[in-house]
Amino acid sequence: MQEIGVGDIHTHTMYSGFTKYKFLSFPDSVTTPRTSIRVAEKMGLGALCITDHNTIKGALVAQKLNKDMVVIGEEISSNEGEILGLFLQEKVDPGLSAEETIEQIHSQDGIAVAPHPYSGHCFCVGNKMNILKFDGIEVFNSLHRDGYSNALALENCNGHAKLGGSDAHASFMIGNGYTLFNGSSQEDFRIAIKNRQTIHGGKVASLKDFVNYSARVAYESSKTIMKFNDIDCPMSSRISRVRNSRKISYLLFSLAYAFSPLPVVCTLLGDRVLQHKGRRVWKEQHDG
């Protein structure tokens, strides 16, 4: 009986930079590559794709720790929507057209994937996913709790490998979304995507996951301010440039946020907003 492998095509580490929402800016992830690997190994994943925003630094660090499991990837900000590049040899620059971005991925013998193509809150390619030369479509993204985004991706996926990813921004989210493939190696995984012989699956991230993520970001930020973390990543680089007087303010705010009801309140409010945005995209697609 042939072995069935499990891969997660979409995860982030602390090298993923910062997320901006309105006037707020906060670390996209505070997960170390080592922690990502430890969790993935415990879950028995055969392939862990580390796809930080516009960089492969985190993936390169992780691959040194487990070259058999870690796939070097990148979530690239093309000027027409975000695109996942998997099995990369080098970084793909952001700001190119979607077509140029995919060409650069393929020139490295990489895999081009359309992540969350109908997201209501992420910059995505939408209906262009069936026009552009993608190898696969992320038809299940565990961070999209709205129920509409994933349904639209699956409904409109035409002739591509159907893939599942966690889009994990915290270690405890890894594997929430997954892709099954025949075999166990990275090469088996790559061939399965190319041949469209994959099965997607998973569960949406819980509200508890989002609350924990929100609190974890604040807590780990405070540790970095106090120099308990000395990893060279975007978060530590940004904090190192802040005046000491302001660091105290940031530290107090981070700790107050992490140990208050605010993560719960923000998660509940955010979930309602994202549900509304997902419903709006669904109506636009079906009413249009």
Score class of each variant (00 low, 15 high):
F26A: 12
F26H: 12
D28I: 00
S29P: 08
V30E: 00
T32I: 03
P33R: 05
R34S: 13
R34Q: 15
T35I: 09
T35G: 01
I37W: 01
I37Y: 01
R38I: 03
E41C: 03
E41Q: 15
K42Y: 11
K42T: 14
K42Q: 14
M43L: 15
G46F: 02
I50E: 03
T51S: 11
T51P: 07
T55H: 08
T55G: 05
K57S: 10
A59N: 02
V61S: 01
A62D: 10
K64G: 15
N66P: 08
N66K: 15
K67E: 12
V70A: 04
V71Q: 03
I72F: 02
I72N: 10
I72A: 08
G73I: 02
E74A: 02
I76W: 03
I76N: 03
I76L: 08
S77Y: 07
S78M: 10
S78A: 13
E80Y: 01
G81S: 09
E82F: 10
I83Y: 01
G85F: 06
G85I: 07
G85T: 04
L86Q: 08
L88T: 04
V92A: 10
D93V: 04
P94W: 04
P94R: 10
G95Y: 02
G95W: 01
G95A: 05
G95N: 12
L96E: 09
L96N: 13
E99W: 00
E100R: 15
T101K: 09
T101P: 10
I102M: 12
I102P: 07
I102R: 08
E103Y: 01
Q104A: 09
I105Q: 08
I105R: 08
H106V: 14
D109H: 15
I111K: 09
V113D: 07
V113H: 05
V113N: 09
A114M: 06
A114D: 04
P115F: 02
P115K: 02
S119F: 05
G120H: 05
G120K: 05
H121I: 14
C124G: 06
C124F: 00
K128R: 12
K128L: 12
M129R: 06
M129P: 03
M129Y: 01
L132E: 11
K133N: 15
K133D: 15
G136R: 03
F140N: 13
F140Y: 13
N141M: 03
N141Y: 00
S142P: 06
L143C: 14
R145I: 14
G147T: 14
S149W: 00
N150W: 00
N150M: 12
A151P: 06
L152Q: 04
L152K: 06
